[in-house]
Amino acid sequence: MPPLNRSHWRDAYIYASDDRSTMLGGLWVAEGLTNANLYCMLQIFCLFTDTFDLYDSCEQLVERDGKPLKPGDYYIVTAGSITVTDEVTQIRTPSLPSGTRVASFTDAVRQRDRRCVITGRQALLAHLGGWDTFETTHIFPLAYEQKWLDSNYSDWITIPPAKESDGTINSVQNGILLGSNIRCFFDAYKLAIDPDDNYKIVCFAPDAGDFKISGRHLDQTFLDNPHRPVDQVLRWHFRQAVLVNMRGAGEACLEADFPPGSDMIGEIMRGAKAAERMEFELFTRFNAIENRT
């Protein structure tokens, strides 16, 4: 069976007003999404040469306001041009890096959060070292450390790891503790945190939305912690989620459930974005190992 692409569960669709036969993108309208959110997300995956407005299927202007977004068709009206960006997205998988370089990162994130940051569920056995069903994840993936370095993303970090060789990408400010199932949705870009809308949790797929978290905002106690993730990495992840889910037909969902005894490598190679996924798996593991050179 071919992999699902993310248009299969959409209930809102975006078109240019002068070409209503070509879908530019769309989304699943989750709880808490507003008209203003849609305008902002459009500016992530579309490039405009002039100002624009949105109209609904009744030819009514959609204001840039906090009213709940509704399912349906939306049409962009502008005196300029509209181009869907060809920006390359960075795939990620639920693989957890394990190695000497990420050990202190894992400890620091656990001790800071001690709960799933998105749902608020407490790690009740944390004081005994019990972290079952809780997992740390890099917001900007460890597999892309070279991109992190080349783009000077380390400038975002004010709290580097104690060991310089661990690299700034392993700063506690690039990590978050999540429940295991929530982490899978986060890593699949099915949910994200919008730091530019008061740290709103946005779900992009019904299975993530089933946790009734979409539209909530991160806890203020977490936001007041000086060691919390920096806005720039949350913004990077949110941008990736918008591109992956809303642009065009949406990108394919990568298989993540490999039953015991299955040919995982074979399944990956037969799946979507096989080369990119194998590269991600390789560099996730490679970058988790201490660099002794």
Rank of each mutant, 00 (worst) to 15 (best):
T136D: 08
R110E: 03
T158Y: 03
G25C: 02
E145P: 01
S154Y: 10
E290N: 10
W236Q: 03
F185C: 09
D207N: 13
G215D: 07
Q60K: 15
P260E: 15
S104G: 11
A288G: 08
E279N: 15
T119F: 05
W9T: 14
F222A: 03
V172M: 02
T293Q: 11
I76N: 02
D196T: 14
V62E: 08
D155H: 07
R183A: 06
P260R: 10
L54F: 09
L96D: 12
W131H: 05
T137V: 13
L191S: 06
Y189I: 05
Q60E: 15
P206M: 10
L142W: 05
A256G: 13
P195D: 11
I44C: 06
D86L: 09
P3L: 09
V172E: 00
N152E: 14
T119H: 06
F52E: 08
N170I: 05
H217V: 07
I213M: 08
V62I: 15
I118L: 12
E87R: 11
V233A: 01
M278Q: 12
F286I: 13
L4H: 10
R114W: 01
T106I: 08
G26I: 00
A108F: 04
I44L: 06
L128T: 07
W131S: 00
T168C: 11
P160R: 06
C203P: 04
D263M: 08
D86V: 12
K190G: 08
A126Y: 05
Q122S: 15
E145N: 14
A272E: 13
E290G: 12
D19L: 01
E135M: 06
G130S: 10
V202F: 02
F45D: 04
Q240C: 01
G66A: 14
R216D: 10
P94F: 10
I91F: 01
Q232A: 15
I159S: 05
Y13N: 07
V172D: 03
I169H: 03
V242D: 07
S57Y: 12
G32C: 04
S165V: 13
Q146M: 06
V62N: 05
T119Q: 06
Q240M: 08
H138A: 02
G175C: 01
C253H: 09
F283M: 12
R216Y: 09
R270C: 12
L38K: 04
G26F: 00
G175W: 00
V77N: 05
N35Y: 00
V202Q: 06
A249G: 14
N198T: 11
F238R: 00
V102D: 08
T34K: 00
W148Y: 11
L191P: 05
L33S: 05
M278C: 15
A205H: 09
V117I: 14
G179N: 05
V84Q: 01
T93E: 08
Y55K: 11
E281C: 03
N170Q: 04
A126M: 05
L125C: 11
Q90I: 13
P71T: 11
L254R: 03
T158D: 12
I182H: 03
E255R: 09
L191C: 09
K70L: 13
T78K: 02
G179V: 07
L254A: 10
I268R: 00
G32P: 07
L4F: 11
D155W: 06
P71C: 10
S81R: 14
G32F: 08
